[in-house]
């Protein structure tokens, strides 16, 4: 069993089998099974309270599964949660950067936490600032940046140590439509370089930009497929209608 799991996990960045998390008598994540391929953009959708956050915390090695297995970037989250944490990046709209640190200090801090060497940090910082067009903002406090810039920087910091998988928890909440789209182009570019992207969102148009999406209801995955296939299966014109149908069933 362990052998097949290890073998099948080779092309997969995330492999989840019968994953369950209970808090007392409440089952927050109920026996979910799915996998995400390397370089895939995977949308993790669901209503508030459906269990997305709990599942994501287990995938990131922050919470121990009650049962089931979960392999992320080649490491078992129950047995090697620290290895998992080193191999992933994480960004959420709520917290990502230190507001009272400068742009370069944030990069330096996170890269240091991930154990990158000084020289590599220095050269990659230049690259990243140039890529973002942020050279002039190097010494700006993060709190002084417009929200859209913060988000771009937060994403760049999350993938700075070249993780195999990046987890994005509602990364685009509250930003203007053009910035939201530019952010998704950054996601595409990262995926083209082979980074696996695991993303939650409440914008249903963004669900369309994923290679595949899963929709969680009451702790279970009720649907998982490419957006186009889901639209066809549910005879819906958009992912919004698909979502409504699955969640209200």
């Amino acid at each position: 069993m362990r052998n097949t799991l290890a073998r099948s996990a080779q092309h997969l960045s995330i492999y989840v089998e019968n994953l369950t998390k209970r808090f007392g008598s409440f089952t927050a994540v109920d026996n979910i099974t799915f996998s995400v391929e390397r370089g895939e953009i995977f949308g993790f959708l669901g209503a508030n309270g459906a269990g997305k956050t709990t599942a994501m915390r287990m995938l990131c090695g922050l919470s121990k599964p009650t049962s089931g297995s979960c392999v992320v970037a080649g490491y078992d989250v129950s047995r090697e949660p620290e290895k998992v944490k080193q191999s992933i990046g994480y960004m959420s709209q709520k917290f990502s950067l230190y507001e009272d640190l400068k742009v370069w200090e944030n990069i330096r801090l996170f890269a240091g936490i991930y154990g990158m060497g000084e020289k590599l940090i220095a050269s990659k910082t230049e690259q990243t600032l140039a890529h973002l067009g942020f050279e002039a903002e190097r010494n700006t406090l993060v709190k002084a940046l417009p929200l859209g810039w913060k988000q771009k920087l937060a994403f760049s910091v999350a993938i700075f140590h070249e993780p195999e998988v990046v987890f994005l928890d509602e990364p685009t909440g509250g930003v203007d439509p053009a910035t939201r789209r530019r952010f998704w182009e950054m996601i595409y570019q990262a995926a083209e370089r082979g980074v696996t992207v695991f993303v939650t969102t409440h914008y249903m148009d963004e669900a369309e930009y994923c290679n595949r999406v899963s929709i969680m209801v009451d702790g279970r995955i009720e649907a998982l497929d490419a957006p186009k296939n889901l639209r066809q299966r549910f005879g819906a014109s958009g992912m919004d209608a698909v979502f409504q149908r699955i969640v209200e069933k």
Partner: peptide, 13 residues
């Protein structure tokens, strides 16, 4: 003020 930010599509509706 932004009563539906961070709220899923069904609760928003």
């Amino acid at each position: 003020d932004e009563p539906t930010t961070g709220v899923d599509p069904i609760s928003r509706r």
